[in-house]
Design a protein around this nucleic acid. Structure first.
Lengths: 211, 211
DNA sequence: CTATTAAATTGACCATGGTCAATTAAAGGA
DNA sequence: TCCTTTAATTGACCATGGTCAATTTAATAG
């Protein structure tokens, strides 16, 4: 009530934003943690695709409605869990020394690519969440993509690569080829080549064109 | 029965394929046509996302089960309708003269890109179906992607572009940048640039690098 | 024309994600 | 300690895609 009254004369938009600032009870955090833990448990046992909201709330000992009070929908929780995992891979990438060649780059990217394509379902979620249509919808996965671009830009600083275009474009291109390569992994018509054999030539051609 | 008996001693795999060869009644085609027409009607009135199986079978005058006897699932029908539309755009692209510059190329690609991103839902379906995991699952959209690559390769024949890598790779790259550009159109963080302003620089950098 | 066989259709039923009015529990002031 | 307010939870209920045993209809052999 206090928060509400203090802000009541502010603009509607500001007020909308501040609604988030309502006091959060301790049990909320516990409930949320239980839900996430239950989901992760299911995933570790049966994979991402096998996760069912019914099963999550059963294991967490809550009602179904509680799940949706904590997460907008099932996929929002997937975004959280997958995004967290992606961030772990990015952490690993950051503490390694920057790759100096395109094939080193592929090697460094490999663990992340492997995870992103560990299940068709996971890759679909990643694609869907990599760009959120509205700012409010931006989730963890969307932010990891921005982070990837930043990491690529740092790599590019310490290596000889094409200078005819700005680093942002180069970094975005690396990303585009990563996606393309992973998509083809699932493609029955084109999955004969490994990620390594495909991404390598792409990156070489993109980063060090020999015209 | 005739077909079945004749082939009964063949290998299991061959037999599986030949199951498709069962005699098809005329009414089947009519029913199928009614279902597709009903779906297209809904789509033209309310968009792709608004299509409901219940509504389709209601308009087509069939039972729900009939729908799934004709299409593996709802998305298989979407694949059909969207894929058909993509092919129309590819037809248009083929009868035009090949673009000679990257900006001409963007202009030629624009109508297709606009359609593919006319709805978030449509783009999601296209991404999901662009690579089918199993050969049996390959649908129209998956084949249109192969067709796109072929068209790109023809374009590349009649124009000065980098020769340091094979045409297949170049064509696949065009495709990768198309996807990247369209994905960013839906991204709240990066949708300020138009498709034209983004795809142009990508293609220029990819097709005519100035090292 | 009838019987037989297989194709096509049906609709009751299920699986699962998601909603919301009603209820319960926590937090803070008097 | 009690009261008020609001946060949190609940579970019956809904929406929609999808299944399948039972039934109807078409095709064809005799």
């Amino acid at each position: 009530m206090t928060v509400v009254n203090i802000l009541f004369d502010q603009s509607q938009i500001f007020w909308q934003k501040q609604k988030m600032a309502k006091t959060i009870q301790k049990r909320t955090l516990k409930t949320r943690a239980r839900l996430i833990a239950a989901a992760k448990e299911i995933i570790s046992q049966n994979g991402f695709e096998a996760m069912r909201v019914e099963e999550v709330v059963l294991r967490a000992g809550t009602a179904k409605g509680t799940f949706f009070a904590h997460f907008k929908d099932k996929d929002a929780l997937m975004d959280l869990i997958i995004g967290e995992k992606i961030n772990e891979y990015l952490d690993q990438m950051e503490i390694q020394t920057s790759p100096k060649t395109s094939s080193q780059m592929v090697k460094t990217l490999m663990p992340l690519c492997e995870f992103m394509t560990c299940e068709r379902y996971v890759f679909d979620i990643i694609l869907r969440y990599s760009g959120a249509t509205r700012i409010e919808e931006i989730g963890i996965i969307a932010t990891t993509f921005g982070r990837q671009i930043e990491i690529f830009k740092i790599w590019l600083e310490s290596v000889e690569f094409r200078k005819d275009i700005e680093a942002d474009i180069v970094a975005e291109g690396i990303h585009a080829f990563m996606i393309q390569t992973m998509a083809l992994k699932f493609c029955a018509l084109h999955n004969s080549k490994s990620i390594n054999d495909r991404l390598g030539p792409y990156l070489k051609a993109w980063l060090s064109p020999e015209c």
